[in-house]
Design a protein around this nucleic acid. Structure first.
Lengths: 240, 240
DNA sequence: TATGTCTGATTGTCTGTCAATGCGCGGCGG
DNA sequence: CCGCCGCGCATTGACAGACAATCAGACATA
């Protein structure tokens, strides 16, 4: 069986724009509600309108941007109600991923998961929130690769991108960190025991706890009138 | 609260092309592996290349078409291994949808679900496979609307589209039909009892049974060298 | 047979153009 | 002073034409 690792695929410009734009959105370089005018993106990336428009379609399908007719694309905004839904779905998908990982991951992948976990566990409170998010992201990368289910991987990936902003704030909560570490430890240990059911439960619990914290933060923000993202496109009522 | 039901949203041409193309793929008017040359689609729909290309991006993100660089889009092909993965994910998502429906659907929606179920139950073996698929599709439409989780709805919708071809064959299996009806009955009855856990289980079981039948059929096809879809784009090895 | 080359067709991308739509601004009247 | 109306400008949606890069298949050659 030939090795695929050396295979190269030509990357169209559209693909690069897509990736950079996605990255820019999930790292909050574009704020939720912000208008992504295509001219502006043309100047920004130095490509033609067609390429921009095609790249935006991809992100539209992923739910990262919403396109309102005749007004163009806007960075998607996640309401508290939607966040609840996202965590609900994330719970079952992550559980399924953990289940599959415990059943089907190679021993190398299990070791890799453990390694990333140790890095997370070694993080001291006060670390850069982006660094922590990146680390957690690597944990998920291993998990999604080892679960041997590309559909779970793709969908969970989308969900994680979708609420990355919220995750960044919950992850960086210093009181939350030790709990997070313990929850992830349970996942890793279940996986090492090849205990699929245990991994399922550990994942569900982890997401449930994350959801609890996230929704608390969202409610606090709503109560204190905190940093609510601009919702400029709300001028006219539109179905959605 | 003003009624949204009369709200209209301008539908760009791109949107219409997207919907028709999706429909054409789901209903097997384009066969898996078929090449969707953009010129051909231009002539077919009578629109410009830009519109076609943007519409294809949407379907690409949904996984309905795969785009190989410098060769264009092809109708996605579902291997047996991928089908297994799809059913795995569908199981948990459908369970979550059933769970949410039992908890949150209005009594009208419950009645609606029951009504669609009665239509399915009244179907006699030998009915048109497309008619049955449409009916089942309506069942899911009600389920996904009533579960009050647009993310489950979108993802499950994608998965159902993704393997609609396979579902058409399993649904139309005459020996399978009575079992299908019984499985769905369990879902409806659990929902009517507002038994979220029961609905969860009933949905999981239903998908598990469907998966069993589907994979059996796939294996039979593979064994008898049956109607394997054209896989023309396999000429050159490319990373996936 | 295996290798190298050529050619036609298709994709990826850019540019320019035009109609339709939405937003903001200023004028007008009360 | 405030609210309403209408106009102009900027942007989006869609089209057509063009060109380089790439690919598949036929062809020629050793």
């Amino acid at each position: 069986m030939p090795d695929d690792s050396l295979q190269i695929t030509p990357q169209p410009v559209r693909r690069q724009v897509e990736e950079r734009l996605r990255e820019a959105i999930i790292t909050s370089r574009f704020m939720p509600g912000e208008h992504l005018s295509d001219r502006m993106l043309c100047d920004l990336f130095g490509v033609s309108r067609g390429v921009i428009r095609e790249a935006v379609r991809l992100l539209e399908a992923e739910g990262l941007v919403i396109v309102v007719p005749n007004r163009g694309p806007f960075v998607a905004y996640l309401s508290a109600a939607e966040a609840t839904q996202v965590y609900e779905v994330r719970g079952v998908l992550e559980a399924l991923a953990g289940h599959g990982f415990a059943e089907r991951a190679s021993t190398e992948e299990v070791a890799e998961l453990r390694a990333v976990f140790e890095e997370i566990a070694a993080t001291r409170p006060g670390a850069d929130r982006m660094a922590l998010l990146t680390l957690k992201r690597r944990f998920y990368d291993v998990l999604l690769r080892g679960c041997r289910n590309s559909y779970v991987a793709r969908m969970l990936d989308q969900l994680l991108n979708r609420n990355s902003q919220l995750r960044a704030t919950t992850l960086s909560d210093p009181t939350r960190l030790p709990h997070t570490v313990e929850e992830i430890r349970r996942i890793v240990e279940a996986v090492e025991r090849r205990d699929a059911e245990g991994a399922w439960q550990a994942c569900r619990d982890h997401v449930a706890q994350a959801a609890r914290v996230a929704l608390r933060i969202l409610n606090e923000r709503a109560a204190t009138g905190g940093p609510a993202p601009a919702r400029r496109p709300a001028a006219r009522r539109r179905a959605g």
